[in-house]
């Protein structure tokens, strides 16, 4: 995972560095400096990571058992559900998507009592909805429910 992040940081800072050459005036100087610095730090980090893994590859095996460095299954499930939630919020509407999202995560994370999960997910949805709309006059996506 560390290597993935290192590559990602190289890509991001490379993009920022490349784009910064196109800005007019002195607007590009600062981003160029910072992205250059990041590429430098990232290289040190890459070096450290390689060294660490070489030096105590055995110890790391042990540590891996203690602290998983790979993304967990829960991370994938939660992030995919959350992305779906945000994506569907606008077309379908807060009042419908939210209880479904809440209930599915609650079940996934080990909510056992069905009654508890259903009551909580619906009640929370309404509490949040009223908190935001009535108190704060904030438009929460309505979607297909035309209230």
């Amino acid at each position: 995972m560390a290597y993935g992040v290192i590559v990602l940081i190289y890509i991001i800072s490379g993009y920022f560095l490349y784009e910064s050459t196109k800005f007019g005036g002195d607007a590009g100087i600062f981003p160029r400096m910072v992205s250059g610095a990041i590429i430098f730090i990232n290289t040190i980090y890459l070096y450290q990571t390689i060294k660490e893994q070489k030096e105590n590859s055995k110890e790391i095996e042990k540590e891996r058992n203690k602290l998983p460095i790979k993304p967990s299954k829960q991370f994938y499930v939660i992030s995919i559900l959350s992305i779906l939630y945000i994506a569907l919020l606008s077309p379908i509407g807060f009042l419908i998507v939210t209880p479904i999202y809440l209930a599915s995560i609650m079940f996934y994370l080990g909510g056992r009592s069905k009654k508890m999960v259903f009551i909580c997910s619906i009640a929370f949805t309404f509490v949040i909805y009223f908190f935001f709309t009535s108190l704060l006059h904030i438009t929460i996506p309505q979607g297909i429910l035309n209230l």
């Binding site: 909510g111 909580c120 935001f132």
Partner: peptide, 19 residues
């Protein structure tokens, strides 16, 4: 229990961000 807390934090955060 975290199974109640985790999704709730996410939904409130989303609404808060939109606000």
């Amino acid at each position: 229990p975290v199974y109640l807390l985790a999704p709730l934090i996410f939904v409130i955060s989303t609404a808060g961000t939109l606000a």
